[in-house]
């Protein structure tokens, strides 16, 4: 690596998280989900029959671009993350990190919040050829939708076929959600993960609350 490249790259990406004691606000901070959880507790709500919603806030979100077929690309990515590179419309997860196929040359990685800079640094060092890594942690949040009627809520929200035979565990689909969009991943039998954009979070939160109303909604951590 030439001196110039090194100097340039130190400016390209940075540790974006503060080291000190700084208040951090997820996109749904203002919705005060903890107070809604308290309502669940007070009411002793039976969540089994309805819909449960939780925000998994402040995760590291990294967009990884590269040519899947380029020599060494997938191997390097796998080596750097310890994850196989998911194929079309699928995901690979080790419990802490999840890598999702977004398009033929695009993947979305999520990981614990504090790791964004380290992972970005690691990937930039590891990935060969024409690649890009972009930290988009501040632009996204994750919603977890579960319960017996979670699928009905999805059917109200997207025209994508969310039946078992079309949407097995681990599948990832970017599609419409209300009049916005989401990256949807099937996480278990009754559970779905939605990655949504920060600026649409409030709209989608209202949308999902409204869509869930007839089934009974509870909010969880």
């Amino acid at each position: 690596m030439s001196d110039r490249q090194e100097r340039d790259q130190t400016r390209v990406w940075m540790q974006q998280l503060p080291s000190g004691d700084v208040r951090v606000e997820s996109p749904l901070y203002h919705a005060d989900l903890p107070s809604m959880m308290a309502i669940n507790d007070d009411a002793g709500a039976d969540t089994a029959g309805g819909v449960a919603l939780a925000e998994l806030p402040l995760q590291a979100h990294l967009v990884i671009r590269g040519r899947a077929e380029a020599p060494g690309f997938q191997e390097s990515l796998t080596q750097a993350l310890g994850l196989q590179v998911p194929t079309r419309l699928s995901s690979v997860s080790d419990g802490s990190q999840t890598l999702r196929w977004i398009g033929p040359d695009e993947w979305l990685l999520t990981a614990p919040a504090s790791q964004a800079f380290d992972i970005e640094t690691k990937l930039r060092a590891a990935l060969p050829g024409h690649v890009a890594v972009v930290d988009v942690s501040g632009g996204n949040t994750i919603l977890l939708l579960s319960g017996l009627h979670a699928r009905s809520v999805l059917k109200k929200s997207t025209s994508y076929d969310v039946s078992d035979r079309n949407f097995p565990l681990g599948k990832v689909v970017t599609t419409t959600m209300g009049k916005s969009q989401a990256v949807i991943r099937r996480v278990d039998e009754l559970g779905w993960e939605l990655i949504i954009r920060r600026s649409f979070a409030d709209y989608l939160w209202l949308w999902l609350q409204d869509a869930s109303a007839e089934y009974g909604l509870s909010v969880h951590e």
């Binding site: 009049k179 600026s199 649409f200 709209y203 989608l204 869509a211």
Partner: peptide, 17 residues
Amino acid sequence: RHSGQLFDPERYTALHR
């Protein structure tokens, strides 16, 4: 349900509050 508050998405910045 595309009516009232949900007629169209309202996008907010992080400083909206």
